[in-house]
Design a protein around this nucleic acid. Structure first.
Lengths: 223, 223
DNA sequence: CCGAATTAGTCACTTTCTGCGACTAAAGTC
DNA sequence: GACTTTAGTCGCAGAAAGTGACTAATTCGG
């Protein structure tokens, strides 16, 4: 391969940092330094030797001061769409952050998915990719737990699932499935949240591979 | 952002082309032009203006003379692992090809997944990513159909699923699930394959979004 | 102090889905 | 024509999921 010189930086790493705010998902944006009314996803050009994932966590740390509880690559985006940087391609990462620990630094702010600021086309595609990734790996990975504090009530957990699935769930069925999966462990603590009966606190209980050995489901989404 | 010059090409696009050969999946490799005993995944540095996916389909067309029936991005790979190119990052694409139409050009050959040639670390990671992608989107996307010719018998379809899932399926259950999903359409043709009763031919019947409205399943794989 | 309201947690019933064996059907083989 | 081989279906038993109604523990407003 002949060596050439390239004018643009090789690529950027962009982070779609997601938290649950109120009853919606929210995404972290950073205010553009030149045009003050423009916002964008936080991004960075990796240093030489820096891995992609390390670049993504650095972006997150610069924005929030904390590491996300879950980091996952969404993919590479390019295809001619505009980006704040001049690069052809950006690698997008999804980062999950529990809302309690997610105080944005100056210049950064959470925007609920419904009233997001206009983004450059490539970053818009990344946000869509991130929400799709959340939906599709929701029952493959402990997404919901990574958006909650380490201990939580089952009602909180159910609300989180309802938010992520955008669907109401039946309490008894939800708990039955939860029990069958051995996913949570009860603590010896209860929390009284104003009105009704106090709720027991639980924590996520990571488990050894218990592969669900089911038949085919054919839950196709695409044409 | 200050403009700089970069010594390496921005990135490569690599293709993991997969077909079903005999009772196993096979992956297409290309013989290295300098070291004749080395093989690698086919790859390419995109031209300016060429989209990532276009680069991937071009790689496939150069290798097989035909377009894959399914193309899907797996992700960006880098993280310091070695690659035939000198780039820091490669974007990997999965391409599915029915075995009937998949005659490799000179220099290319199919290798069953079991006896794959040794690959550069980054490409090895891509192959793993591809097999994971196949497994995980098997009931989200018509993967199996894209590895079969346009018309097929239900036994062939079942065998394809058994190959992909690496698990035996029960005939009646398989067909019941298939029927419930309205995924295939019977043709007015039968095919006699030597011995037993002739089998009816079917074709894939893409459907309008019939979202599976199920509850949560918690089929977690990870710890 | 008591009853209504509120939230947590469980139970039991019904419906649906799945695993599976056994059956019928249509070909080839000897 | 009996036997083998592959295709395709039926129907039951047990498991899983959907659902409403129930009990439990607390606050609030009198």
């Amino acid at each position: 391969m002949r060596e050439r010189l390239f004018r643009t930086a090789p690529y950027t790493v962009d982070a779609v940092l997601v938290t649950a705010m109120g009853n919606e998902l929210a995404i972290l944006l950073v205010r553009n330094s030149s045009e003050r009314e423009r916002w964008s996803l936080p991004w960075r050009i990796p240093q030489t030797g820096e891995t992609l994932e390390a670049a993504a966590t650095t972006v997150a740390k610069d924005a929030l001061g904390e590491l996300p509880t879950w980091v996952e690559q969404i993919g590479a985006f390019g295809d001619g769409k505009r980006h704040p940087s001049e690069t052809d391609v950006s690698v997008a990462y999804l980062g999950l952050v529990p809302h309690e620990t997610a105080a944005p630094r100056a210049g950064y702010a959470w925007f609920q998915a419904a009233d997001l600021r206009p983004l450059a086309p490539r970053q818009r595609a990344m946000v869509e990719g991130a929400t799709k990734a959340i939906q599709s790996s929701l029952d493959q990975a402990p997404i919901a737990f990574r958006l909650l504090p380490p201990t939580f009530t089952l009602s909180e957990l159910q609300q989180m699932y309802e938010l992520l699935l955008d669907k109401r769930l039946h309490k008894a069925s939800f708990r039955r499935a939860l029990q069958a999966a051995w996913l949570v462990e009860p603590m010896d603590e209860w929390r009284s949240e104003g009105r009704g009966r106090p709720a027991q606190l639980f924590r996520y209980l990571p488990k050894k591979k218990r592969r669900a050995h089911r038949g085919v489901r054919f839950d196709f989404l695409y044409p």
